[in-house]
Each structure stands twice: as C-alpha cells, then as structure tokens.
Design a protein around this nucleic acid. Structure first.
Lengths: 144, 144
DNA sequence: TTCGTTGCAAAAGCTTTGCAAATAT
DNA sequence: ATATTTGCAAAGCTTTTGCAACGAA
C-alpha cells in the first residue's frame, strides 16, 4: 500500500478548509520537512528566513499550528518550557532520550514498553489517544 | 529507617542558604502539602489566598521554585502549556494517565516499564536522571 | 540592627490577534 | 473580483524581577 505524500496531505487539508497554499506556507513546510531534528519555532523561523527573510514569525506560528492540525507535525516539550516540533506523519511512533547537558535528542522505540502501556490502560479502562515518554539524563559523549 | 519529615527538609534547605522561614512560605508549603492532586500556580494561589488573601502571586512562584529546588515538589506538564506541581519527596515514582476530556489525572506505576527504560538507557550508554511518561486519553467515566 | 522577603508593578518571554495591504484563485 | 493571507505591531499570557517597605533573627 502506497503512502500518501506529506505535501498531498497538506494540500487536501487546505482545500477542504478553503485555505490557500501560499508561498510562505510552502517555504515553511519545506523547511520543516527537511529538518530531521526537533526544532523550536525560533530555529524554524531562522531557517525560513534563510530562504526568504521577509517571512514573519507570526506566519511560522500560524503555519506550524496548521501542520499540527493536519497531522504532519507534533508538538513536544523536550526541554523545560521549550516547545518543539517534529515530523510525525508516516513515521513510526518513538520516544525520546534527552541529554540535559548537550541538549541532544535521540529517538528510541521499545515494543514491550508499548505493550505494558496498553495493559495498564486496559486495567484502568482507559482509552489511550497518545502518549509521551521522555528519559532525561546524560548521553555517552557527555559522560567522558 | 525513619524518614525525615518534609517540613525539616525545607527548614534545613533554607538554613543552609541563609534564608528565612517566613509566614507566607509556611502558608504556601502547608497548602501545597495538603493538596493531594496536581495543582498549577493559579490554583495554588487561590487556595493560599483563602488562608491569607494578601499573599501575592509572585511569592507563590518564588516559593514553589524553592520547593522544586529542595526536592519536595516536581513540575509536570500534564495539559498543554499548563505547568503543575506535585509532591515528590518520600513518594514512590509514578507515571500519569491523563483524561483529556474531564482533565482527571490518575497515577500508576509499572515496574516492567521501568526495567525496560533502564535497559534502553544502558543500550544507548545513557545515564537516566529522571523520566516522564504520560498516557493521554479518555477515562472510564467519560466513555459512558 | 541587619539583611532576607514581600507585594506591587513593571518587565520579559512566548504566542496569538487585529488590521490594512498583498496575494491566490 | 473576492476572500484568504501576510507582516507588522499590539495585546495576552505566564513567569520573573526591581524596589521600597516590611519582618525575621
């Protein structure tokens, strides 16, 4: 089964809401999709301004909110108080290892953990919609 | 082995830093320790003002930051953008089930999940300092 | 008496919003 | 032509901070 490309997801979402695929939106989405890491709004705006320095911060906020709405992006709070965004469409679910010294973020996935999460939810008759797990600590490189 | 009471922890912490156990601090700590749920600053301030309505919001912020510093309280982001505090000293570690409909928070603990977290960290040569896991969804009561 | 603390108000961050000009269809 | 979108600036929030008055030791 072929996966619908991310660009199409956004186009359909916009079309359905009578919204337009404008040049600033194109630039922001392109920058977001190209970035493989977990970026906050400020970092995204910086990168967007390297393509077109007239694109404003408010537009980055507005566009990222759209991307969250249509399921292409997900917000995360990885550092204290700093919200950041990551690609989520078509990617497997994963959790995060966050090094509090060098601020590096590593992703991991552990099927058994997911299984026990499901079990816990069932025990509490709770329907999981989403979940977040983050391990904070010191990474290998910083320990040396 | 007997556990040092929370009030003593704070007193020692303040004494060591040449800080004073003032009346507003006493009230805020008392309110915080009595509350069994996960309260945000606004809710804490409301309850504090029921004891003494002259205690200001800034003092609640300042005092809660002290409680986090001395290990009696822990910050959590359970709802979007809302920071809240919970007692942590002398309590077992636990994770959270958050109902996004009624905003109820339930605690749970699963030793196997902790074990696999440790295993994952070891595999990445990562030293865990702390971790957060939150399951978002719909609780039993809200499903009906 | 001394120096930390308080409440208030102002400031500082981050995010959203109102608006006239610009733009997509 | 029409309705959406933009950048800018202003406004909203939450949290922190400067300061003169206050209070604990």
């Amino acid at each position: 089964m072929k996966q619908i490309p991310e660009s199409k997801i956004l186009e359909d979402f916009l079309a359905e809401k009578n919204m337009r695929l404008t040049y600033p939106r194109k630039v922001i989405v392109q920058v977001f999709l190209q970035s493989m890491s977990h970026l906050d709004i400020e970092e995204l705006h910086e990168r967007v301004r390297k393509v077109d320095k007239d694109i404003g911060l408010a537009t980055v906020y507005r566009t990222m909110n759209l991307l969250v709405e249509c399921g292409l992006a997900q917000e995360n709070v990885l550092f204290q108080d700093k919200k950041c965004f990551e690609r989520v469409y078509g990617r497997d679910h994963h959790d995060h290892l966050v090094c509090t010294r060098c601020r590096t973020v590593k992703e991991f996935h552990h099927p058994m953990i997911e299984r026990f999460q499901e079990k816990t939810a069932k025990k509490h008759e709770f329907s999981i919609v989403s979940h977040r797990m983050t391990l904070f600590g010191i990474c290998r490189d910083c320990k040396e």
